[in-house]
């Protein structure tokens, strides 16, 4: 089953490809600051325009390939994803190694256009292709004692050259509460703009949890474990004061080193205006219920 959620950002209500091209031409052709300022205003009026394929695939945080935003696009070609499989274990009825092809045969892939908000206070809009994580978990058969889902990224320093240096404690691990994992918004993305997801974006399959900061959306997943204990997460291990387990997008809870009240939309050029960050990244209606009665400043 799928299509439990309908896109609220569509290709139609945002500015489509032609206008996008025009804007590019304006940007390319302009010489003076006055014109640039004009283009900046235009861009800010179209903040829900999905970012271009080029933007999405050239500006990445994927420390497995280096800490610079351009490093993943530069180095990810070394990664081989043939014969990929995902180990699903822990509190499931059907544990085992699931071949990527077999997973895809059983899942229904749909397009989800989501806002993407990085903990570093920049944002994009991304048209993902993927399936609901719930469908995959149902396939493995989640046992009633399971309360959390743990994820793990591939560890292969020969191909993921950033892993040769300990910028983080490899392999990258992430986790969700089971109800978060089962929410219809939570998907495993396998594509962008209808194309197979590029290595630098987390090929061949990655998590996307649109109401949480981007680092929760773990890439190039090789292992999923159902557990009854809250699993460790990479950024929390690196700096518990700055990165909590939940890491829900929340404009009222600042990162200790910067404000989370506003964000810089990427792709709007040099004069793009900041915009206000939305509670749960704009998915409050869908997910606020998951956290009822919780102190979100404490459980950040």
């Amino acid at each position: 089953m799928a299509h439990r959620w309908k896109n609220d950002l569509t290709h139609d209500d945002v500015t489509p490809y032609n206008t996008y091209l025009n804007r590019r031409q304006i940007m390319a052709g302009m010489a003076g600051v006055g014109l640039a300022a004009m283009a900046g205003t235009r861009a800010s009026a179209m903040t829900l325009e999905p970012n271009s394929y080029e933007d999405i695939t050239s500006y990445n945080n994927f420390y497995e390939f280096g800490t610079g935003k351009g490093d993943p696009a530069k180095h990810a070609h070394r990664l081989t994803t043939d014969g990929w499989s995902v180990e699903i274990d822990g509190l499931v009825d059907n544990p085992g190694s699931y071949a990527f092809e077999d997973i895809m045969k059983n899942m229904s892939v749909e397009e989800r256009i989501y806002r993407f908000r990085c903990v570093e206070a920049w944002s994009m809009v991304i048209p993902w292709n993927g399936f609901e994580l719930k469908d995959l978990l149902d396939m493995a058969g989640v046992q009633s004692s399971a309360k959390y889902v743990a994820f793990e990224t591939l560890y292969r320093p020969d191909e993921m050259v950033g892993q040769k240096f300990r910028s983080l404690d490899w392999p990258y691990v992430e986790g969700l509460r089971l109800d978060e994992a089962m929410n219809p918004l939570t998907i495993m993305a396998t594509g962008i703009y209808g194309k197979p997801i590029p290595n630098q974006n987390g090929a061949p399959l990655r998590l996307v949890v649109p109401w949480k900061y981007g680092f929760k959306s773990i890439k190039s997943i090789v292992k999923i474990t159902l557990t009854d204990k809250q699993p460790p997460t990479s950024w929390n291990k690196a700096n518990a004061r700055e990165y909590g387990f939940y890491s829900n997008v929340n404009p009222t809870v600042d990162h200790p080193r910067w404000s989370q009240a506003t964000e810089r939309p990427i792709g709007g050029g040099l004069f793009a205006k900041r915009k206000e960050t939305l509670m749960f990244n704009g998915y409050e209606n869908e997910v606020a219920g998951l956290y009822e009665g919780m102190d979100l400043a404490r459980n950040f």
Partner: peptide, 15 residues
Amino acid sequence: LALNGGLGIDPVKGL
């Protein structure tokens, strides 16, 4: 460069 895309898609941080 920042005005003309020479600093990538995040010219603010680039500069």
